[in-house]
């Protein structure tokens, strides 16, 4: 069982503990700052990275500490690619209710993917090998 975040170059793997989301943000922001990106762009990417990792921890892995969430960052000259993989139940985006429908406005959850689709250029959600979900985000930076 992984007890703490494990960082290898541009990849961070954490156990499914919601308290570790801050470590993911620090990892992503530090890598993006090395590229001297604009603060607002860094914020958008960090928001989306934490959204997807939170989903993996809470909805995919159901906070099972024996399961991990991995985030990999690919920094191309023209775009940032983030790949988040969990080990839980596959995620079906079609089952998420419209968060801006009047009946859902006061719901406390259910906005993550909606926000990510607004802030990122592309969002792909696939089934991971051996179960779980892989979410791939891209954001143009040039």
């Amino acid at each position: 069982m992984l007890n703490k975040p494990e960082i290898q170059q541009n990849r961070i793997t954490i156990p499914s503990d919601p308290a570790l989301i801050r470590e993911v943000d620090e990892f992503v922001e530090s890598r993006l700052r090395e590229r001297h990106l604009a603060d607002t762009l860094i914020a958008d990417i960090a928001i989306c990275a934490t959204e997807i990792v939170n989903n993996g921890i809470n909805h995919g892995n159901k906070r099972d500490l024996n399961k991990t969430v991995t985030l990999e960052l690919k920094l191309d000259p023209e775009q940032v690619v983030i790949v988040v993989t969990d080990q839980g139940i596959s995620f079906d985006p079609q089952r998420v209710e419209d968060p801006v429908a009047p009946r859902n406005l006061l719901r406390e959850v259910g906005r993550g993917i909606f926000i990510v689709k607004h802030l990122m250029d592309t969002v792909e959600i696939d089934r991971a090998e051996g179960g779980g979900t892989v979410v791939t985000l891209t954001k143009k930076i040039a």
Partner: peptide, 17 residues
């Protein structure tokens, strides 16, 4: 507050309620 994500927005809604 530099930014918040959907969890932060959910916290705001919970406080409002």
């Amino acid at each position: 507050v530099d930014w918040m994500n959907s969890t932060g927005l959910g916290i705001m809604i919970s406080c409002l309620k």
